[in-house]
């Protein structure tokens, strides 16, 4: 949905053709907009797999929002539970200062 919003105002019918690619938008480059879990066909997000979860945890230790990571709703939900579990087990920090 937000894809459409991004290309609005530039008026081109074919403007949203290059969906997946990073494109300038007010000088700001969009990150990849494909869900990593859909693309890599990961069905079960394992909470013990720190290497899988780490890209979704920016410096601060918060969970990266969907609008930035591009994760689909289903997988973001699964990711959320996986991260909470990993946090309980001290595999991932709750906060980093």
């Amino acid at each position: 949905m937000s894809e459409e919003r991004g290309s609005r105002g530039r008026g081109g019918k074919g403007a949203d053709k290059n969906k997946g690619e990073a494109r300038p938008r007010g000088g700001f480059f969009r990150r990849r907009r494909v869900c990593k879990f859909c693309a890599d066909k990961i069905d079960y997000i394992n909470y013990k797999d720190v290497r899988l979860l780490m890209p979704f945890i920016p410096e601060r230790g918060k969970i990266q929002p969907r609008r930035i990571s591009g994760t689909c709703a289903l997988h973001q939900r699964k990711l959320q539970t996986a991260i909470s579990r990993a946090r309980q087990l001290a595999l991932i920090p709750y906060v980093t200062d």
């Binding site: 013990k48 797999d49 720190v50 290497r51 780490m54 890209p55 595999l91």
Partner: peptide, 11 residues
């Protein structure tokens, strides 16, 4: 490239 130190876990 995005290898972060962690345990080897098989899925």
């Amino acid at each position: 490239e995005d290898r972060i130190e962690g345990v080897e876990v098989q899925r």
